[in-house]
Structures are given as C-alpha cells and as structure tokens.
Design a protein around this nucleic acid. Structure first.
Lengths: 234, 234
DNA sequence: TAGATTGTTAATCGATTAACAATC
DNA sequence: TAGATTGTTAATCGATTAACAATC
C-alpha cells in the first residue's frame, strides 16, 4: 500500500471528488485503455466494474463525481469516458518528473514503461555517488545521463518540473526532499522507508515495498491459524 | 497506493483487527524500530503517533485492537510493543519469498534491504528469458542464480514458500500467477499493472508505480487550478 | 412502447475523532 | 496524593451498498 501524507477530498468542475474515488480513477483509466486497445467502443458500468475489480454501484457512484458522461439504457462511450477521466486526473498534459537516487530502484523507475505511456516524462536523473554520476540510462528510448544533485535546481527551473521521486536510502531522503522543495518541487513520491517532513502545500505519497509484504504476511499468518483452528475443531 | 483485492477485517487474539488498522501497523513497527536504534526505552502515544504521521487518538485506538500493552500514566515499553506488533503482523517468523520476473524492477526488489531486515527471505528468482536465466544476483549478501520458471515448483516445495512476487510485464502476469497458485503460493504481491484472477483463499495486493504518480498529478493540477482561481479573484 | 442501464437516493457500514474515566 | 497517559466510549464523518426512478 501507499500512504498519502496529505489526504482530504478535492474540487472538480462538478464539486468535490472524494479521496477514495480519486484512488480508483487510475484503475478505471487503465481498464478503459485496455478496452480501447481491443477496439471496444461502448462499455456498461457492469463490464467496466468487472474489469476494474469493483462493484458496478461503486463505479457509477465514482463516475458521478466527475459528471454525467454515460447514456441511460446504453452505457459509456469508451473514448469519451477515457478522456474525461484523463482530464480529471490531469493526464491531458505531460508532467516532467525528476528522479533522485539511481540505484536498483531508481533505475527500475526510470525505465518503467508505465511512466511514459501515461503522460509522465523523466527529465532528470540525479545521484550523489561519483560512481553513478555520468552513467547514462535509457529512458523511453532516449539516453539520460545521471547528474550530480547539485545540478537539480537548473533542471527543475528549465523544465518546470513540479513532481519529484525519491529513490535514495533512508538516510538521504529528508535532505533530498529539502533540496527538491527549495527548488520548486511541490509533489513528491517517496520510496524511502521513512516519513519525510514537508511544508504545507507540498504533497507527499510514500510507497514502501516491505509494507505490502508485511500486510500479506499478516493475512498468511491468519490463514494458517484458521487452518489449525479448523483441524483442532474437526 | 496499493490496492488490496481481498479486503475485510481480520481475527486476532483480541478479536477483529480492522483493515485500516492493519495497514498502519507496518508504519508503527518501523517507527518503533527507529526508536530502538536510538536507544529509546519508553514512548508515549503522542510521541509514537508524531513519528508515524497519525493522531495519538488513532494510534491508541489501533493499538487497542491488539491488546492493552501500555501503562497508564507512563506510556509504552518500546521493546515490548515492537514485539507485540511484530507478532500481530506475523513477523516473528521468517517468510520465504519467490520473485518472478528479474528485469529492472525484479532486481531492485531482490536487492531491497527492507525485505531481509523485516523477516522476508528471498529463496528463488525466476524468469523465462534465456538471457537472464543463469545470471546471479546478490540477495542479502548471498548469490542467488536466476532460474527458469519451470523450476519454481520444486523450490516452492522444498522451501515451503507461500508468498510470491510478480515483477513481469503485464502480458505474463496472469500465467505466472496461475503457476504460482498451482504450486501452493497463497499470497501474491503483483507489480504488473493488471488485475490478476485468483481462486478464493489466495490474497493479492497490487502495487502500480504509475498509479501513485497519477494521484500526485491530480493534486498538482488542483493546486495550479486554485492558483489560477485566486489570481482571477484577486 | 419495452428493455436496458444510468445517476441518485437513502440506508448501512466502517473509520475517525474528541473527550474522559480508569489507573499507573 | 497529584500529574500523566492509557484504553474506551460515543459522536461524527466518510465510504459503501442496494434499490430504483429517470431516461435513453
């Protein structure tokens, strides 16, 4: 799971979009992309919900926060709904992104095809390790050279990047965060397993890969315990 | 954010632990680890909540689902609470984990120090690409050779692994999932940006790195819109 | 018109919060 | 005892769900 450090609902053309709804929009977006790829033109709430792993009631409720983009008795125009969701999510523009910490994880993120394909453009890769600085990484078909973090300010300035990704070890995360914030980054995706402090107005989302495994372990443990209980009862 | 495909609350010695609470236990666990490292012996709900980014009321409520492990007027014994949370999460045992798909992301996951340090042991790395099979990867100080996925059954059998990680491209995810499930894996962490189908009793958690960026983009867009609105109003 | 499916309502459920009695 | 802090209660808030009127 990822942990938002800055929750609360948000304003759209229609009014407020609940956080729970916002968190599901990317899934709907992806399902619609897949339908487009298969040449499907029209989809019902039942079908799209099934493809997205939610109930149709929840899907219709979620979509209703964006507007009335379906046709009663018919369904949703795939192309049109895709555009409306993309617009709501802010994916009708390209977002320049900088990544700091180009170890295993930073490399994986830089090369992640899902970034480029969904409107994000990696415009800078930074590290402090002299071993890594100067290396070049293939990002979305073009080579990007890993640069010392001291060059971050001018890259952010010249590209207008407002989103930064932290993929450093825990110890460096807060300092990297401070550099980012000082230079105009206002949204941070943090993969370091630590809570970082940011001024008001800066959004942070944290993804901790081990957290997800821990939650699975919790469920596993529960399953083996209930198996034991059943064995004892039976 | 990560998306659980199998929600609902769970049973502990005390009774039911709500999902919202379970999702925060890893954070508390990590905060307590950090306190231990700094030699702190005692912590109040106020301090631990601050370190974990939640309110003290929420923290106390969450802990109350595990049991009464604090002392009124005093606080919580760090070591003891750490153990109780670890026990609740199932971290008092080592969980063998297999990873399938050893590209950039799989490599990053295999080398992630947070896995070993929190009771997970990577016991197998699998791929289908003949280029990758045979390569060796350093995991927690020891070399593991990437093996063809046809060898997964015997590794799962010999290690008793019940947790699997999918780090393949989207197209391979369902097939890999089927192989895992057929061979006794009952918890899956899925990094492929697609919903996978599993039989009842198998837990899946999905982490989509792009989803997190999309949610940040949503917030960014909102911020620039409200800046515009303010400018027009002022 | 008859059939289908949306968008909305209202009821239910679960999570959060503040306040405070219990108790060290 | 006085001060501090937990564990629990009850009120509030937000999310989910089922049902159905609206309408294509």
């Amino acid at each position: 799971m990822s942990l938002s450090q800055t929750p609360s609902a948000h304003v759209s053309a229609r009014g407020v979009i609940p956080d729970a709804t916002v968190s599901r929009l990317p899934m709907y977006h992806r399902s619609l992309l897949s339908l487009t790829a298969r040449g499907v033109l029209l989809v019902s709430s039942e079908e799209l919900a099934e493809a997205s792993g939610v109930s149709s009631a929840k899907l219709r409720k979620d979509l209703s926060f964006l507007g009335s983009y379906g046709t009663r008795g018919v369904g949703y125009d795939v192309e049109f709904l895709l555009y409306q969701i993309a617009r709501a999510l802010g994916l009708t523009q390209v977002w320049p992104v900088v990544i700091v910490g180009i170890g295993n994880l930073g490399n994986a993120l830089a090369g992640y095809p899902g970034f480029a394909s969904r409107g994000f453009s990696v415009v800078g890769l930074f590290d402090t390790d002299p071993q890594r600085v100067g290396e070049s990484v293939t990002v979305a078909g073009k080579e990007i050279v890993v640069t010392d973090i001291s060059k971050l300010p001018q890259v952010v300035l010249s590209t207008g990047a407002s989103i930064g990704v932290i993929a450093t070890p825990e110890a460096a995360a807060q300092e990297v965060c401070d550099v980012m914030v000082r230079n105009g980054i206002t949204s941070i995706l943090n993969f370091a397993p630590v809570l970082i402090e940011v001024p008001a107005g800066v959004d942070v989302r944290r993804v901790d890969l081990a957290t997800e495994l821990q939650i699975l372990a919790f469920h596993e443990q529960r399953k083996s315990q209930s198996a034991l209980t059943q064995a004892n009862a039976g």
